[in-house]
Simulated assay, not measured.
Amino acid sequence: MTALELADIIGIICFALSGFLIAVHYKLDILGVFISAFLTALGGGMTRDVLASKTPYVFTDTTPVLLVMATVLISLILKLHKIDDLEGKTVFIISDAVGLVSFAITGALVAIDNEFNFLGVLILAFITAVGGGTIRDILINRVPSILVSEFYATVAIIVGLVTYGLHLLGLHSLFTLILVFIAGVALRLLAYYRNWHLPTLSK
């Protein structure tokens, strides 16, 4: 299993869980729960593949769909939907952080494989990481997390930048990507618990 495949699997599972928890928080019906999970887990990757002139892999490989369905079903069996204030619970915060960093890495790797330049790598890392969640937020009529959340999308950009830097330095390996993953998740969690935000222009 390649680093790209591993990061993709981790990202899909974690973002499917994140989408499930958001859907429960907003009291969506069972169809809405599955749609939220699918959009969060697969929306960014589909957008990434289109930009990279590739057929979205969810149309050619059943693994991503099965992962999302299994994640939702297991969450239902464990009765996670019966826990109050799921969006503020540790399970949501961690799953969202892991999904964010995993997908930022996969976006950067796809861009590097397609010989994109610096800007292309950053954009694909960004879109893969936050694209699905943004589509989901718009669908359920809430302000997308990337616009208001504490140091959220910035983490995806930093992870993409570091991944590209490793590629340029010839240090691109599974080991170094694992280190980037750990550091990215730690940064996101630190930003959440320390309530770090980018400056705003409001009074």
Rank of each mutant, 00 (worst) to 15 (best):
V33N: 07
E87N: 10
I30M: 13
I123R: 00
V50A: 09
R136D: 11
F175P: 00
F118P: 09
S95Q: 04
V185E: 06
L124E: 03
S149D: 12
L122I: 13
Y26D: 04
P144W: 09
L139R: 10
G99L: 01
L76Y: 13
L169E: 13
E115M: 08
L179H: 02
M69A: 15
A97C: 02
F20K: 05
F38W: 10
I9R: 08
H167G: 00
A183C: 12
F59T: 04
I13Q: 00
T154D: 04
T55R: 09
I146N: 03
L76E: 13
P64Y: 06
M46H: 09
I182Q: 04
T47P: 04
T90Y: 14
L161H: 04
I112W: 06
I140G: 07
R136T: 11
T106G: 01
F175Q: 08
L67V: 02
A191I: 11
T63V: 15
L86F: 06
D61L: 08
G184K: 03
I30Y: 14
R48N: 11
A108W: 11
V98P: 01
I9Q: 06
F181L: 08
F15L: 14
G133P: 08
N195F: 06
F59E: 08
V121D: 00
F34L: 15
G43W: 07
L124R: 02
V162A: 05
K203F: 14
L189W: 07
L174H: 10
F92N: 01
I35H: 07
I10F: 15
R142M: 10
F151H: 04
A125V: 01
T40I: 06
F126M: 14
G32R: 09
L39R: 01
I158A: 05
L119R: 08
I135S: 02
F151I: 14
G170Y: 02
L78W: 12
L168H: 06
K82F: 14
L42I: 12
I93S: 08
L147T: 05
L80F: 13
L177G: 03
L198P: 05
N114W: 11
T47C: 14
G120H: 07
V65W: 15
S173Q: 06
V110R: 01
T2Q: 03
S202E: 15
L31D: 06
L4F: 09
L39N: 00
P199D: 01
G132Y: 09
I35D: 02
S145F: 15
L201T: 12
L166K: 00
F151Q: 07
G44E: 00
M1L: 09
H197W: 11
L67H: 02
D96N: 10
T2W: 01
D61F: 11
L73M: 15
L100P: 07
V50C: 03
Y192E: 13
V24G: 00
T90Q: 12
P199C: 03
A23N: 00
I77N: 05
A104M: 03
G107D: 02
E5Y: 13
Y164S: 00
T163W: 06
V130C: 05
F20S: 08
A37H: 08
R194C: 09
A153G: 15
D96P: 05
R136V: 12
